[in-house]
Nucleic acid binder design. Structure first.
Lengths: 154, 154
DNA sequence: TTATAATTGACATTATAATGTCAAATTTGG
DNA sequence: CCAAATTTGACATTATAATGTCAATTATAA
């Protein structure tokens, strides 16, 4: 009915869902003392990771999340003064999102909490296997992101 | 700051989140014609996977989801006559959840849609690598589920 | 048996996420 | 320069998920 690869991947998917939910919950617990959640942490991370300040819609695209939700999260972060908006020379309405001092401190604190936690979580695994996992995950991700775009050759 | 394993795992996590969300969305699209969603499909799967009919709370535990949400989903499935409740000889209130004929047909139809889809998704990957991924995922899952229970030896 | 704790479904409330629409602003193509 | 398409943030609505509480029921232990 299915290929051996399809079977193996099928077996994997449910555990993947479960792991995802466990990671989110663990992340929530980890950074709760900082007033963060997994979602907020991820948004801060996307802002840090970007080379230059971006408007909300771009950050949402980077995250693969939907625009309105990311907007809400960033507005929340703004209320708590973790991010600020800067004038965008290229767009009057779409302001650029940057971390405030407080935002930088909070993000750094989160990463400092993360280090021992992820070290412990990875204990017993080999870098080689983790890389294999990463490669497969990326491959699946890429395949799913190429939304069946059958590009018409002009 | 982090071990090499911790670093590698860190790199992995964000892609894992993204993949998860892509898989859920793809699943939603796949089974939408059947009136299902990823969440409903998963609940049906848990009912099928269990050896014997279970009350809602047990299914929720199997799924690692929260009880109230699973209850809501199962009530929805009940309204659409995909599941039915049976008297539980061991508990007056906690009825046993079973699939109706329609539920069985729908679940089977979902799996038939899934087969070619997952075959295609797994194309290009080796069973060996997929199994490695599964093993690592399971290991992480187990570690996160053992909620720091420092069992006291009596 | 009795009392104490744990489980379970129902209900209510809140939080988060997803979807759709709109007007302002920008970009694109001519 | 102009018109059409796209992007963007704001807003509203709905859907889904999470959290807390309660009474009924069952399980456990004394």
């Amino acid at each position: 009915m299915r290929t051996p690869e399809g079977d193996a991947l099928s077996d994997l998917v449910l555990d993947l869902f479960r792991l995802d939910s466990l990671l989110l919950t663990a992340g929530d617990r980890l950074v709760a003392p900082l007033g963060l959640t997994s979602a907020r942490w991820q948004v801060l991370g996307a802002i840090v990771a970007a080379e230059r300040p971006q408007p909300v819609a771009w950050i949402a695209r980077d995250l693969g999340g939907n625009r309105q939700n990311v907007q809400r999260i960033i507005n929340d972060l703004h209320k708590e003064e973790l991010v600020a908006f800067e004038v965008n020379p290229h767009h009057r309405r779409a302001q650029l999102v940057v971390l405030t001092r407080k935002g930088q401190r909070t993000f750094r604190a989160a990463m400092e909490l993360q280090a021992p936690w992820i070290d412990d979580l990875s204990d017993g695994l080999s870098v080689k296997d983790i890389r294999t996992v990463h490669r497969v995950i990326r491959s699946l991700r890429d395949k799913l992101e190429g939304n069946g775009e059958v590009e018409e050759s002009v």
